[in-house]
Design a protein around this nucleic acid. Structure first.
Lengths: 192, 192, 192, 192
DNA sequence: CATGAATGAGTTTTCATTCAT
DNA sequence: TATGAATGAAAACTCATTCAT
């Protein structure tokens, strides 16, 4: 049942299938047998790896959230100047949106959702910590505005999400230049 | 059947109930009989006013979207200086989020959603027009950055949504001061 | 409630509408409000004239059955030779099918149907009496085969129904000549 | 899903249950859970084997129609004289009516019915072909009247149906002798 | 008398979950 | 361990009937 014992990788296959489907059709809009079919396993097999559909979406949420924060933070240039770090952060956000589109859509779509359990919600907080720490450190260096770090993060992340959404929906044509401009705007928003 | 003939106001009662429930539990997560119960009408009555659950969510989406844009734009100080206008816009956004919380959550939650029909999507575009017009005018006056108006709007609106979300979830404590700060940040983001 | 009191003719309007709809879509396939709409009366009005949908279909069945037997028997040439009478019967059957098509279809379609009450079923029998009497009389005159009159009637009537059905469905092209041929065939079937 | 894979025979159980119920109460008068109960399966199981109630009635119609034509035509004495063949046909019709009463009633009751799809209607035609071929061949041998074969078939089949109906309803007492008489009558109707 | 808006019981259909194999 | 057929509870939706006007 644990991932360690899952030789054939069925657990991951199920999570991958669920990711694509939940991102496209939402949690309530996706039937478990469909996830199983997409994952090329039997419907019953889903329940060998996950207690319920809710357990599945929570496991998935946690996996994706951790993947997201890893994409943002692994090997982050901790010593670089804040301006450089901000640019890097923005680049990573966008790279994640492009290379893990389903994941990004899924995370945004399921942010809310009463099926998320305590563990998922708690992860939400825990995962923000390194980002907030970076903000605090930059504030100490007087590189960012001395406001509630949560607020600064919300502004930048919120803007990112909206721009990404409009790019996905085709409402906004996003080029490398667009991204640079957006990054510049947001730097103005948060810089000291 | 049309709102004009609906003396008892049942149509509105149904829309109001649907708004609260869809905002809280999502479209697929809300059963029609639950909407009926909340609206204090029989389950069948919902179908006297709306052809289907999809028709209901679309009618609701359009009503709320129009309410949102009216809250933003009715009596907007067209002649005021851009800085003043931006402050006003931000104030209105926030007022809407506070006084029509369900509406704001609903609109955000159902922005996507494959059940939205052509009319709803078209409204989406039409409703952005006055905002984009305001941006273009301010750009002409060299008060805002000369970037794609859609991009500037996405940044400010996205930041607003995220801040509002975190306020609703209690993750972020929002005071009048917080809002002023956020507004100041975003002005820096978009000002010329 | 009785037909006598129904000045505006609403009762008949309802029956007429029901006839057309039941013939086309069947009893269970026809909604009462649709009958009301077709009859240009309110849905509630149907229930002023008929206790229930079942009462309506039974009243209709009886009206149409009586109309059918009247079309067959009123002014029937009782004194004519049997061969002549048979020809006349066949002609009348066909005239009825052509001028009261809905009625004919309705009667055939609702012959069975567990919603028919005792009165309708009893009428069924009563209405056959004059036809059976005619057969018996012709048998006495040794003009028809000396078999169970019910059997002879069933053969002719059954053949008529099937030919009419195929004519309605377009499967069989029926001309005046076709009818004469069919009549000749059936005469051979029953003649002494 | 196909009959071949249906080890427990549930598909056939469902069809059998539907046959009995549709024959007794009609298509619209029979609720799917009732069919399921009669077939001793869960309500959802019906939908594993048939896409919808309409798909079920069509599958059933086709199965029964093919069974009917097989009962009429399999091992038909093609070389026998026409008189003999006619007698055989009538015997087979009646045998079918007696041993597959539900099937016969069902086929007659659902002949019309707007829920029948193209495949069912097409089968209708295809199935009549061997019968019509027999008629044409007999006409060529000058054993039957040189009329439209469809007409001759309609007369005999219509008479059969009506006699069967009256027998089922108890209106007509049918003995072996009755059948012989009826057969003789109809032979007179169609013979050259 | 006449109406038609309102209803809730009943219908068709879906789907999370189980369990025999 | 893996399966997928089977299920029944619950969903969306319909409609015969009522009742306030």
């Amino acid at each position: 049942m644990a991932a360690a014992r899952d030789i054939g990788g069925k657990r991951d296959a199920i999570l991958d299938a669920a990711l694509a489907l939940f991102a496209e059709r939402g949690f309530h809009g996706t039937a478990v047998p469909l996830v199983a079919e997409q994952a090329r396993v039997g419907a019953g097999t889903v329940y060998r790896y996950f207690e319920s559909k809710e357990a599945l979406v929570n496991a998935l949420y946690q996996r994706e959230k951790l993947g997201f924060i890893a994409a943002l933070m692994d090997g982050f240039p901790v010593e670089a100047p804040t301006r450089e770090q901000f640019r890097e952060l923005w680049k990573r956000l966008w790279q994640f949106a492009e290379t893990h589109t389903s994941s990004a859509i899924f995370l945004e779509l399921h942010h809310h959702g009463d099926y998320l359990d305590a563990a998922s919600r708690e992860l939400e907080q825990r995962v923000m910590e390194p980002v907030l720490a970076f903000v605090r450190q930059a504030q100490a260096a007087q590189a960012l505005k001395p406001l509630d770090p949560e607020l600064l993060v919300a502004i930048v992340y919120g803007a990112f999400v909206q721009v990404a959404r409009e790019a996905w929906s085709g409402q906004l044509t996003v080029t490398a230049e667009t991204l640079e401009h957006a990054e510049a705007c947001l730097w103005e928003a948060v810089r000291a």
